[in-house]
Design a protein around this nucleic acid. Structure first.
Lengths: 170, 170
DNA sequence: CGTAAAGGTCAATGCCCTTGACCTACTTTT
DNA sequence: AAAAGTAGGTCAAGGGCATTGACCTTTACG
């Protein structure tokens, strides 16, 4: 089944997630595919987050704490490109709900070392798996040479000048 | 050059867009690649939009008007999952700035047929090309068999149950 | 001791979205 | 023709989430 949007004349109720009939240009379909993949891998994680009353802001913090435990508040603010005022509410939720914990850094007790709790690690793992599972399944099923092609193309799309990209994963 | 985030111990200033050293799991790198590609293809379009004081909301409307000219306000609200109150400001901008135009539908003069002006089509084309160019270049450069693999994998990631995805392109 | 840094908090603001109510213009039903 | 319903626009109130600016405590360091 092809993937697209819709064409003029299609009833509004049926227009959602249909194929682009007006503009079947070379790469429009590939672009739509990319968008669909992106929404797919966000949807599952969002559902899990919603179970606990969390949002993507919490996930982003938890993600970086899992990758790099011990980051300070300032580190995370810079990494996520947030002010400390904006950063505080989601962090507070993570701390009071027991997803993360803070301890003063031994070498500089002004700084806080933030790290996920076991419960937080578990949640982050669940979220990560929800996002990774489609990649893992697709790349495994397609075989190593297709996976190599996929990686080459994705690297090319990502571009060489990665340093200029703002940091906003996941 | 590998693509990742950073590891604990990396100075905060250098942490942006570095490689994941702590968790080099199988598909974490692929996931990071996907995120980078996504940000890349948004960045260029955002820059163009900013030139004209527009945002992604305007782009989304313009995109659907280009794909399916003649949509009504209600059609677009349903498609974009917006209330008419939220939809009105960006639409107003598009109309008053000459990116789109409205005319009463001949068969039902309550409805408005919205369509891009030539100027609006041109902008949408620019935006679309900005988003498509990385795909086109990457897929062309990689050759047809790699492109086929890429498409198979992306289709697999997008999942079979596309109908359950909310409509939010581009 | 004085300065500076890390972190926290309060206030005001802006942007974008929501729901609810109410209005006009037009179409369809009765 | 009157009544009811639909498409669209607008006003008001409110929430979520980000911003800037100011001010505070705790800690580090010259």
């Amino acid at each position: 089944m092809p993937l697209t949007y819709f064409s003029h004349g299609t009833p509004a109720a049926e227009r959602v997630n249909m194929v682009d009939l007006i503009r079947p240009d070379g790469y429009d379909h590939d672009f739509a595919l990319f968008c669909a993949a992106h929404r797919r891998h966000n949807r599952d994680a969002d559902r899990i987050l919603a179970e606990y009353g969390l949002g993507r802001a919490h996930h982003r913090i938890l993600f970086f704490l899992a990758v790099s435990p011990g980051m300070s508040v300032g580190d995370l603010c810079r990494t996520l490109d947030l002010t400390k005022q904006a950063f505080n509410p989601p962090l507070r939720t993570l701390l009071t709900d027991g997803w993360a914990e803070a301890a003063p850094a031994p070498e500089d007790r002004r700084r806080k070392q933030l790290r996920p709790t076991p419960k937080g690690r578990e949640l982050e793992e669940r979220l990560r798996n929800a996002k990774l599972a489609p990649f893992a399944a697709a790349l495994d099923a397609a075989g190593p040479e297709a996976a190599a092609g996929w990686r080459a193309i994705m690297t090319s799309i990502a571009g060489t000048n990665l340093a200029t990209l703002p940091p906003t994963p996941p």
